[in-house]
Amino acid sequence: MRIGELSTRTGVNAHQLRYYEAQGLMVADRSPNGYREYDDTAPLRVKQIRHLL
């Protein structure tokens, strides 16, 4: 899923998701056009990060 869909599913701003990635808390693959592609476990990881905050 792309960052917009992950943002919608989790209620977390896309800017925050990019910040989590920059801090090494999340990993996103890149599609050939450069878009971030998150796997199916990403919503759970975002939920865990938010819980720890």
Rank of each mutant, 00 (worst) to 15 (best):
L17T: 01
S7G: 09
L44C: 09
L17P: 03
R50P: 00
Y19D: 05
I49N: 04
L53Y: 12
H15G: 11
P43F: 02
L44M: 12
G11Y: 07
Y20H: 10
T10G: 04
G34A: 08
T8K: 14
D40T: 10
L6I: 03
R30Q: 03
Q16Y: 12
M26K: 06
R45S: 09
L52T: 13
I49W: 02
R9W: 00
L44W: 12
Y20S: 05
T8A: 12
E21C: 02
L52W: 13
M1N: 00
I3D: 07
A28P: 01
G4D: 10
L25A: 06
L44Y: 14
Q48M: 15
M1E: 00
P43N: 02
T8R: 14
L6M: 01
D29R: 13
T8D: 08
R36S: 00
A14V: 08
Q48Y: 15
T41I: 11
Y38D: 02
R9L: 11
G11Q: 08
G4R: 14
E21S: 02
V12E: 07
G4A: 11
A14T: 12
Q16W: 10
Q16V: 13
L17I: 15
R9G: 03
Y35M: 11
D39W: 05
A14S: 13
I3W: 09
S7I: 03
Q23L: 10
L6S: 02
N33H: 12
L52A: 14
P43V: 04
M1D: 00
Y19L: 09
N33R: 15
Y19V: 07
I3C: 07
P32D: 11
E21Q: 10
V27G: 08
V27W: 10
